[in-house]
Design a protein around this nucleic acid. Structure first.
Lengths: 152, 152
DNA sequence: TAATTTTACTTGCAAAACACAAGTAATACT
DNA sequence: AGTATTACTTGTGTTTTGCAAGTAAAATTA
């Protein structure tokens, strides 16, 4: 996408992160606490590494991610969310709510949807706080034969 | 996209309408009162007609649009929004709000953003009502030398 | 009523984006 | 010193997109 298609706000959003992968990377950063290339590459959706590198570069260039060095490890970098990315949380929560209604296979706890409907603003604030603390928001995926991080 | 990439709600949404064109068609239906092939084809973003036909078919197949005959004209069809599509309004409004903040060229009246921040629920209800009445929500684009309106 | 225009598509082809596998350089671990 | 890991890049085939042109049916105009 080389030049603006229009001045529509929907178009601006689509041209910023409207492909099959960018928003998943931002989801990983916001809801799953991921920060490194390897963590993104390991996601359930199995993004190809060349696409991943390309999207990280675009997301950085467009001000969604800030690339910083890991002071404890010289080969890994951190991709941290900017305010521009944090401000996508309300939109992402709308997506979560919509998919919970229309996709019966979608992996969202019903409790969370209820809470979201009851106190949207509170949930958003809560998530922002947790992200700043580096906490994970969403539960790990229920993939069989993989450890989930829960204990018995 | 032939099979599910994951059970993530974000992925479900992306795989349903997460390309460069589908959401623009839904925008046209929801906010600009468009219903026919020709009206979609005339949008600012200039979608290619083969892509348009393909997306309309997908959107219909996935339950976003209901194709009905125009009783007054046998060659035009109407593509009407379903509840599934109407339920995207809150998400679209989040996008509008986000773009209004991060894109200084975006064509959204500031009044609207203020109202949206003050009374989100009211704005959503209002839009739903207007759509049911067949009214246009967004202002026509400020393109010079083009006729914008239909008359009654 | 015959010719023209409009609408809603389809077709063909070149260009771009994507997916997959493999390779590489720097760093870290053993 | 040798091996493994991390963060990429490169090559190649496939899929998707964009553009131009074409078509059939219905509506409009002469």
């Amino acid at each position: 996408m080389s030049e603006r298609r229009s001045n529509c706000p929907v178009t601006f959003a689509l041209d910023s992160y409207g492909d099959k992968w960018s928003l998943l990377i931002l989801r990983d950063v916001l809801f799953l606490g991921k920060r490194t290339y390897r963590e993104f590459a390991e996601s359930d959706e199995k993004i190809a590494t060349n696409i991943l590198a390309n999207r990280l570069e675009k997301l950085e260039r467009n001000g969604f991610l800030k690339k910083t060095r890991n002071p404890e490890n010289k080969r890994t970098n951190f991709y941290n969310p900017t305010l521009k990315t944090m401000d996508l949380i309300p939109m992402l929560l709308e997506i979560v709510q919509w998919s919970a209604k229309y996709d019966d296979q979608t992996a969202v706890p019903k409790d969370f949807i209820r809470k979201l409907k009851r106190d949207r603003f509170g949930v958003i604030q809560d998530i922002k706080e947790k992200i700043k603390q580096g906490e994970r928001i969403a539960p790990p995926p229920a993939s069989p034969g993989k450890k989930t991080g829960r204990k018995g």
